[in-house]
Design a protein around this nucleic acid. Sequence first.
DNA 1: AGTCTAAGCCAAGCTTGTCG
DNA 2: CGACAAGCTTGGCTTAGACT
Length: 267
Amino acid sequence: MPADLMEKNSSSPVAATPASMSNTPDKPKTASEHRKSSKPIMEKRRRARINESLGQLKTLILDALKKDSSRHSKLEKADILEMTVKHLRNLQRVQMTAALSTDPSVLGKYRAGFSECMNEVTRFLSTCEGVNTDVRTRLLGHLANCMNQINAMNYPTQPQIPAAAAPHPAYGQPLVQLQGAAPQSSPAPIACKMGGPPVEAAKVYGGFQLVPAPDGQFAFLITNPAFPHNGSVIPVYTNSNVGTALPPSVSPSVMPSVTADSVWRPW
DNA sequence: AGTCTAAGCCAAGCTTGTCG
DNA sequence: CGACAAGCTTGGCTTAGACT
């Protein structure tokens, strides 16, 4: 039955606001009574808002994807949300790739941020008691290894922007933390293990893959040898909205100081 | 800090629509 | 007509803000 027909009374949801109902002169309601009577209306309004927005979203996404709406009349809510997520991720990919092609300093910012994070981890581990020595050694070794790879990275020359890049298969994977630190003897993850279509190669820089993060930032995906079966990656984010651009030639390890705004930090 | 209240969120159960 | 999926209602719980 349509929700409209299930209305128990004819009063408008808007009219039945708490303020108006609390002023009933002949039969004042208690707080609990008032809550009880207004609750279904509030929930109905909430559901109406959700459905209204979903309806608009459906129209927008079908239009954006150039889909015939008459052929998608049975689109479910979950389908609408899925299509929207995919579309937005696609848009972010294109925008981020374009941004990197015009602003290669992003890589320098990432280096600086990684270096600062690594220094902080080292500082913390040196003062933190109870950390297993082996774990500490492996973690620091892994970070040092990563740092070497980052410093060996080259800047892209002319990254190509795919006309219609497909959503990255690894995008949306759960974040892989550093608890599975790679053995120091593991090979450098130069080749990207994402298994994506050939067009992905345009966005692999020095063994790191650039993808847009959900919050609009860049995410460098570092292949993680600790997860060999599914090619898991360690996403490392770098802010694309920072103001100070680092010259590509400046290595973060020799930079005298890094401003708070110019590096990415996880905290 | 403690209390109250409105609003929001969520899960369970119910209703409705669709399909074989 | 029964099974199933989708949507709706509702009660309980949480949260945020106002007030003392």
